[in-house]
Amino acid sequence: MSIPAVAVYDLSYAYPDGTEALRGITFTVEPGLAVALVGANGAGKSTLLQHLNGGLFNARQGEVRIGETVVSRKSVSLVRHAVGMVFQDSDDQLFMPTVAEDVAFGPLNAGLSSEEVERRVESALERVGMTQVRERPPYRLSAGEKRAVAIASVLAMEPEVLVMDEPSANLDPRARRRLIELLRSFGHTRIIATHDLELAVEVCSRVIVLDEGRVVADGPMVGILNDEALMEEHGLERPHILRHMHPHT
């Protein structure tokens, strides 16, 4: 059996003010798989995501492994290159004056040569279809373009795992559709925290349901999201798309 791309063992975390955000979370994700992380607000999704790339690592107990590396203060720079994080608000992620500079930020920090940086910027922007906005300042872009550029800025670091927090938030239907196609086309291991259950159904094959810091369900997408009782118990709902799984087309 291959080594899982992401493995979380019995992870617990409490915020300094005493709020228990995670209570013994355990799951593994095989390489190349797309997993949706769903749960009501406050279920612990964002806290969990922050543990995956070393944003937080003072877990009270348990550990997170990325490939063979245990996430710790020592391994954090390695982990951050392996795990690309796409934030919920693209404005937080696009802080450089131009799109190209922003996409180059990660590769430049990795100390790559300028030719290699240029190659990565070009290919990342091309991958998300945003080469035309290369020299524009990020704040002038639409929400959909910002999201695409934010994804490009992470792709440019060539991570093995993509972690996304609410990727479809604030997108109009067309931008959301493009995002779904883009996410489906990636070969990375993907962990996507979202309230957009229909996006989850289209992109992911597996779902992990969190509630009050615990994993309450983990398994194939369709089986779990179709369980109306389970979904409602944990502040969710059965997505409409599953009511007639045969495609509309």
Partner: peptide, 22 residues
């Protein structure tokens, strides 16, 4: 709050105190 999130985003992409330009 935003400053905090921006810093998180910078650190996630390997920020080490120096901004390098293209």
């Amino acid at each position: 709050d935003r400053a905090d999130r921006i810093y998180q985003a910078m650190v996630a992409r390997g920020f080490d105190g120096e901004i390098r330009l293209l």
